[in-house]
Amino acid sequence: MTLRMPAEWAPHDAVWIGFPHMAEEWSGRIDAARRDVAAFANAVHDGGRGEEVRLVVNDEEQAEIAAKLVDPGVSILVQPLGDIWLRDTGPIIAGTGAARRARNFRFNWWGEKFIMPGDQEIGGALAATTGFPVDDQDWVLEGGGVDVDGTGLCVTTEECLLNLNRNPLLTREDIAVRLHQSLGVERLLWLGNGLVGDHTDGHVDNLARFVGEGRLAIPVAAGDDDPNAPVYTDARARAEAFGGIEIVDLPSPGRVEMGGEIAAASYMNFYIGNSTVVVPAYGVANDRAAVDALAALFPGRRAVGVPALGIIAGGGSFHCSSQQLPS
């Protein structure tokens, strides 16, 4: 039976969030990254009003560090992991209620670029903790490479899913069939490239996200120096040509640099929790506008901006570090 991946705004039982532990991966900013991740976890937990947060830490030493940063209600799960990007290394849950199954995809370090021990094992390990049947998938897919609206509609990018460093023997049509079999995708919107500086080869969760059934949010460039202005324009044109989709404008943070290089900073890396929408904040002019825009899109939830300059030093943000367990 084909099961659909639920939309992120559907109710969650819990969420896994990865906690930074390898200092060499954070350009001297691991303490800031840990504070950002802890603040994210606390916002999602929302004093017990949100959802169960399972903060995944590598060992007991990291558990002690994490415990000093998170609220008492946040669960700490000791489970060896590589990098913190559980959106990509963790399992994706398809179906709801008693029909839920954990789809455990192959992971090849974003095309063999950032090889770390533990990344290929964490998906199966977390899946085993759910009590759901686990289906090992025989192809490479990262959760940040797709976004769904719960009706069978999915958005992705050619840069990522058609990249020869992932599934070189699969055609565009093959991938569409596999997304249908694994996640219940029936309509697939192909965008082009992802953001400048995105080490994941253009994950869509930094570019375009569903904010309702058939409603797709795409950023609007923030001035002439926004490095992603052509990317946003192309994404909008493709979505319009696809048809049947309402396009919603969201702000862009504009040009954000880390160590002299353009960072893949994006408000699109927000996380939709049961009670809270957590929005990355970069200390730039559009931070407030992004929070206000998402608050208007999710009136039943509290939208909050959480500092993300620490976590972006590792190449991602809040959505990248999390993977929800739908109810």
Rank of each mutant, 00 (worst) to 15 (best):
L3P: 07
E8T: 11
F19G: 01
M22A: 13
G28T: 11
A32N: 01
A33S: 13
R35L: 08
F40E: 12
A41F: 08
A43W: 15
H45E: 12
G48T: 10
G50A: 11
E51K: 06
E52N: 01
R54F: 06
V57S: 02
E60V: 01
Q62A: 13
L69T: 06
V70P: 01
P72G: 07
V74D: 04
S75L: 03
Q79E: 15
G82I: 03
W85M: 06
R87M: 15
R87C: 13
P91I: 03
I92G: 04
A94W: 02
G95L: 12
T96E: 14
R100M: 05
A102W: 00
N104K: 03
F107W: 04
F107N: 03
G111P: 03
K113R: 14
P117S: 14
G118M: 03
A127E: 04
P133Q: 06
V140L: 05
G144C: 07
G144M: 14
V146M: 07
L153W: 09
V155L: 04
T156N: 01
E159I: 07
L164Q: 11
P168M: 09
L169A: 11
L170T: 04
E173V: 10
V177N: 10
H180G: 15
Q181T: 14
L191N: 03
G192C: 07
G194L: 02
V196R: 13
V196W: 13
D198V: 01
D201C: 11
G202H: 09
H203G: 08
E213L: 12
G214N: 10
L216H: 05
A217H: 14
P219N: 08
V220S: 14
A221Q: 00
G223F: 13
Y232K: 09
A241M: 09
G243I: 06
G244M: 15
E246H: 10
I247N: 13
I247V: 15
P253M: 12
P253A: 08
G254Y: 10
E257P: 07
M268S: 12
F270N: 08
I272P: 02
G273W: 09
N274V: 12
V278W: 04
A281Q: 08
Y282A: 09
V284E: 06
L297R: 11
G300S: 12
G300K: 09
R301W: 09
R301A: 12
R302E: 14
R302C: 10
A303I: 06
G305Q: 11
P307I: 04
L309V: 05
L309Y: 00
A313K: 01
G314F: 03
P326C: 06
